[in-house]
Design a protein around this nucleic acid. Structure first.
Lengths: 191, 191
DNA sequence: ATTTGCCTAACGAACGTTAGTTTGTATTTT
DNA sequence: AAAATACAAACTAACGTTCGTTAGGCAAAT
């Protein structure tokens, strides 16, 4: 990936974030770069190519993070805190891509779509594994694992809807607050 | 609204739910009804009209629910449990509309868009008010209210991504689980 | 001399929408 | 009871626009 291509991709993502992939035209993207629509095809093979790069780039970031955490021998609470922190970090430091990744992946087609879903499920499984460990350790409440996993992921993912780099909470603080909130729902009362 | 119009709207929503508003054409909608695209215009003035009806119909359902709850003199915990239960009930009993409402509202334009955002903020304010009451009553942890509100709404809204009428949890059970989870994060430890 | 990055021009397809008409079904008038 | 009217809901045909994309060329950088 050349420097120029990365530059164009970034600008494209900034535009896609605003109106969504389907409602954004190649001409919209070109205009933001002050270039002709056709010129984009010197760098990308199709509009969907831009979506693919964005989605799979983000997916692999999440993949790398969860895989690393899963190899560490911390207890479930620490693992979950780390996972949330990494997750928030990735989302907030690539906000444009993150929004597209979370919202527009459905516009992928064919093999790309199924591969993406597979990656997504694999990540979800990584989170679920941590929660399962917490239950096995006797630290987390026994509850519907799938339910717990999805609730965790939803509250974490939703931050892209309101996070602003200018806001009063930085990513680390957000991750801490979120972890406290989530863990209070998972951890057994120490009575 | 005639019976036929309601019927068409419902069929349109089933199609829109699949690919999203922007990626769905008027011809797609017509095909699902086995009619000609032009015929839709006997019932709707535009494609966006369908989106408008869907979004504002859902918005008013939520609006009605929160307003009623806010007039009841229960304590904050009970109010929040009721609000969550109503919210889940609305989402799950109008799943197609709910998905469109949550995902596609950004495709509204002009005055519709700003009015919608206004309604959305007003609902959010209703939830926030309940949480604030809980803090004032000394029952909920003092925390960033906006943060708490958004986390509550995110975990509730995300259920449309995985809820199925055939699943093992019914809406009431989901609402209870979700309430327990959320309230364990809000309520002060009774030490 | 070759490559890179962008251009102009234009393609065919799909888009949302309009105009005008037909059809079937109630309702009213003869 | 039969004929005339009104209306709703669908149709056919087509409009102008925008869509993603391709072909081919030109100028600057390597």
């Amino acid at each position: 990936m050349t420097e120029r291509k990365r530059q164009i991709l970034q600008s494209a993502q900034a535009v896609l974030k605003m109106k969504g992939y389907a409602a954004t035209s190649v001409r919209d993207i070109a205009k933001s770069l002050e270039m002709e629509p056709a010129s984009l095809y010197s760098h990308f093979s199709s509009k969907e190519d831009i979506l693919k790069l964005t989605c799979f780039d983000m997916a692999s970031k999440f993949d790398r993070a969860i895989q690393e955490i899963n190899t560490l021998y911390f207890d479930a609470e620490q693992q979950l805190r780390m996972a949330i922190k990494e997750h928030v970090q990735i989302l907030t430091s690539h906000l444009d891509s993150a929004i597209i990744f979370l919202r527009d992946w459905r516009n992928l087609t064919g093999e790309s779509l199924s591969k993406f879903i597979e990656k997504r499920n694999s990540y979800e499984k990584g989170i679920r594994k941590i929660i399962q460990t917490g239950i096995d350790e006797g630290r987390f409440n026994e509850s519907d694992i799938k339910f717990a996993t999805l609730t965790v992921l939803s509250s974490v993912n939703w931050i892209v809807e309101w996070y602003s780099p200018q806001g009063k909470l930085n990513p680390t603080q957000i991750a801490e607050k979120l972890s406290d909130f989530i863990l209070s729902g998972l951890i057994k009362n120490k009575l």
